[in-house]
Simulated assay, not measured.
Amino acid sequence: MAYNEDLEKRLDFAIGVFPKKIADQISKKKMFGGLAYLFKDKMTVGIVKNDLMVRILGSKMDNILKMENVRPMDFAKRPMKEFVYVSAKGYDSEEQLQHWIELGLEHAQDKLRNGP
């Protein structure tokens, strides 16, 4: 198993709760040896093995990294800018998962408005 398929089902369900105009613009793509969810081709969240990968606005990174069960995404042994991994305990509840999806969407929407 390259990534947690149960988490994929949870993400699919959680994204389906968003308004149709948002949910319909989210696609899935295999990336990083896992699965990424993209909003208008901008990465939001994803799954790498059992971790939830989340794109976070740079202005929120310091506070997010202080949270339990969160660490910098260190794909290829280097931290990636504006990416974090969340371990399973950090997305255990549906409310927690929804929060991470919202942060990922916030990042994508900001990049669409303001560019890289």
Rank of each mutant, 00 (worst) to 15 (best):
K60M: 04
V17L: 15
N50W: 00
G34D: 02
V45D: 02
S59K: 15
K29Y: 00
E94L: 11
M1V: 11
Y91K: 08
Y91V: 09
K49S: 11
Q109H: 02
M31G: 07
V17R: 14
E94V: 08
Q25R: 15
A23K: 12
A76Q: 13
T44E: 00
D74P: 00
G16C: 13
L11T: 09
E5P: 00
L57F: 02
F83Y: 15
L7T: 04
A14R: 08
V86Y: 11
E8F: 03
N4A: 08
A2Y: 05
V45I: 14
V17S: 01
K66H: 05
M67Q: 15
P116W: 03
N69E: 10
L7C: 03
F32I: 02
A88H: 08
E95R: 13
Q109Y: 00
Y91W: 12
G34Y: 00
E102V: 03
Q96L: 10
Y37P: 05
G115T: 00
L103V: 09
S87A: 14
N4C: 10
N63M: 11
R113M: 09
K66C: 08
W100L: 13
A76I: 11
M67G: 04
K29R: 13
F13E: 05
K77F: 07
N114H: 13
Q109D: 00
Y91H: 15
M53H: 04
Q25L: 09
K40P: 01
N69D: 12
Y85K: 14
A2P: 11
M1N: 09
M80L: 12
R78N: 09
H107S: 14
L11H: 02
L105Q: 05
L65M: 12
Y91L: 02
K49H: 10
